[in-house]
Amino acid sequence: MSLLEIRDLEAGYGAVQVLWRVALRVDPGEIVTVIGNNGAGKTTTMLAVTGLVPPWRGEIAFDGRTVHGLEPPDIAGLGLALVPQGRRLFGAMSVEENLLMGAYLRRDRGVEATLRRVYEILPRLRERRRQLAGTLSGGEQQMCAIGRALMARPKLLCVDELSFGLAPRVTDEMLDVLVVIRAEGTSVLLVEQDVELALAVADRGYVMEGGRVVLAGTAAELYDDPGVRTAYLGL
């Protein structure tokens, strides 16, 4: 059974339709990427999955439950966490307070242990734990946003534009973190404009254009696809 399954999803803003019959799935233990140019509908898909943009039509099932029409807190409670585009950290809170906000819905006694694990995976955050999140560098902010999402111990981590505004070295570091997260049992849905990077870590991928999924396949299939090579890899 797929962890996330989207069928015939249509959504938009106001009267403007952005997504047209989008279908994709993420299986347990997978890293799946959605690639495409600006305006392709990648972020809107993410926002619809997390409940921030209400779907118009279609079905979104997560972990065997229909989440269509649920509020973001309900969806977060099922184990779906988003690292949003632009990070959306709580800038006037410390790094540690941001991380604790990530565990807001947890009532178990394991929050401290998760915090220690996040600090192990992202050691820079431990050094900066008392610093206001708004004063971090771009890379550190992305680490904090990922750490905050991990604090929820999600089954699926959705990451919107991981590499945006980051130095290549920092992006590589972040991709390594995603691989570690996957090895620990969390699936990843990665929306990314840097196609080469995305395909390097993904198991499968989808190409979106004009609000539609136009191509799907394994990472290797997409990498070898002539259309993808020309349009996104410049080869």
């Binding site: 921030l52 509020e71 807190p73 988003l82 949003p84 906000m101 819905l105």
Partner: peptide
């Protein structure tokens, strides 16, 4: 929105 995503 970010608070809502945290479950608030």
């Amino acid at each position: 929105d970010a608070a809502s995503l945290m479950g608030v």
